[in-house]
Design a protein around this nucleic acid. Sequence first.
DNA 1: AAAACGTGGCA
DNA 2: TTGCCAAGTTT
Length: 322
Amino acid sequence: MLQQTQVATAIPYFHRFLSRFPTVEALAAAELEQVLAAWRGLGYYSRARNLHRAARELGAANAGGLPSTARELALLPGFGRYTAGAVASIAFGEQVPAVDGNAARALSRLFCVEGTPRLRETALWELAGRLCRGERPGDLNQALMELGALLCRAETPLCDRCPVRRACRALSHGRVQAIPPARPRRARQSLRLTAAVWIRQRRVLLARREERGLFGGLWELPCSEARGRPDATLRALLGPRLRVGRMLGELKRTLTHRELTLRLYEVSGGRPPATAAPYRELRWVGPASARRLAMSTAMQLALATALRRPLADKRKEALSSR
DNA sequence: AAAACGTGGCA
DNA sequence: TTGCCAAGTTT
């Protein structure tokens, strides 16, 4: 949960998740859909899919027990170098580094680490590897991350209060602001989606995405990329005899690499197909059940519009209904 | 190995 | 409002 996510954001999810899946066995026994539902709104859903896979591998291999070395941990899905190092050092006391974004920034400044991204990466892990060879490698690793998060911050570092300011090479060289360099960001691609709002007997038609890529495994209003007229787009998805009515609303949402625009159209007509590629499943869902399904925040907002939930702040409402 | 992958907080 | 980043990993 902490991968690319601030601690404060993850905490409530963490508690709910652990009460829902208290053990590796419980997680392994659960359906992916339930795991994704518990992850709903947290983002980067591949983490939930990987964690679920890891639980199943562990259950099969050693009765749910975790391996205790970074080397073995790194074999599990979702465990990269950082996570494997963090678990090994913090939970098992292994003398291995764990360099997250915060630690990387703090180390970069302390030792004036510069150069190409690749060289810096190597240097940072090397430095962290030396530092963690003490009695409490887990504490060292956490202290480094904490230093980066609380004091050696990206925009406004608090060098006045830094306990290692006398050792900081970036500070003595006047390069604190220049290190580390901001990483280049790619421009966002716009993704325009046309979505079907098909309501029948108080239920809305939802679709489950395939388990990969954007929003993989999550439920949503059936939609596809807008090419040409909305009626043509939606008939290609749900059948040629579909009746496409008025537009019910539009939703814009910014993701890291996407500018998402979702246009909602009222549709009706006959019965939907058994399946609609590339979806894995179609299902009629009542509003109460919809609120419990695995769904992105974007789609929660869209659904709130589609079902015409009253109230100005649909965003807050959608989020609080988890 | 560059690009994709969500969402929220903060200045 | 906009940009940047967050206890990164996968393909």
